[in-house]
Amino acid sequence: MNHALSLRIGPATFRIGSTWRRPVEALVALYADYPAPVDGVADFTVRLEPAGPFRRWLRPSIFITGDHGLADAAPMSLAHGLLAAEMGMNLQMALGWRRHLLLHASSVEKDGRALVMTGESGSGKSTLAAQLGERGWRLMGDEFALLDLDTGAVFPFPRLVSLKNRAIDVLAAETPQRRMGPLLAGTAKGDIRHLVPNRDAIGRMGEGAKPALLLFPRFGHAADVRAVGQGEVFMRLTQASTNYVALGEPGFAALTRFVADVPARAIDFPSGDEAVALVERLWKECG
């Protein structure tokens, strides 16, 4: 394609092609510190193509596709090309990754042990992981946690953190400007700004950790901690996994082990600072 870039995020490699220059330029700037694929061969191809015969020039809009795609995916404005590329990579992972059990979850690491946080979009898991990543934890990822099928370890997928709406100002206040991407205003999910993970997160993207605590965060409620039964944890994680069915028995075994070994809590919090304090307390307790 006219413009292209290859990069590696954690164990996965991508070849991203675009009809337009701008999305690739934005990617090159933000992914500057990420390594290229070993051997130059990518696991997945992502394509950003015109959404219709005239949509390259006239009201340019992007159709996101690649090795795996959704026929009815909504086209996106070229102004949101960076987001389109991110979504294209997520789509490949969600539909095509088979080497780990993929959990729709954020994760951070400290002292070789991982904290995994899962929840719907808007639960605060992304923001919380990003904040912890700026406060002494290693950010492993804000979107996918990769559960090793043999060892049970969690592996990182530290793509750019996608900050939405109010989370943008919260993180911009404690992160150097050079690690913040451009503001993408008025996307389908509101305003979005990307945060480049810090040097530690990128440098150790191949390094897994033993999962020690699972949290179901919920932003916007009075502070609270509740126990979650193993049956419920199992069911919620099957829903949070995009490849649980595709992996068959190994996926079941990995998830069963995770649920049996890792303590789980649901936490509510009214603000980021309180969430961080709550997480630190629970982390000490499960220590």
């Binding site: 130059g40 061969v41 990518a42 191809t45």
Partner: peptide, 12 residues
Amino acid sequence: AGGWNGLIAMAR
């Protein structure tokens, strides 16, 4: 590498 990327994308 380029040949492999093309072959895999076409095969998929």
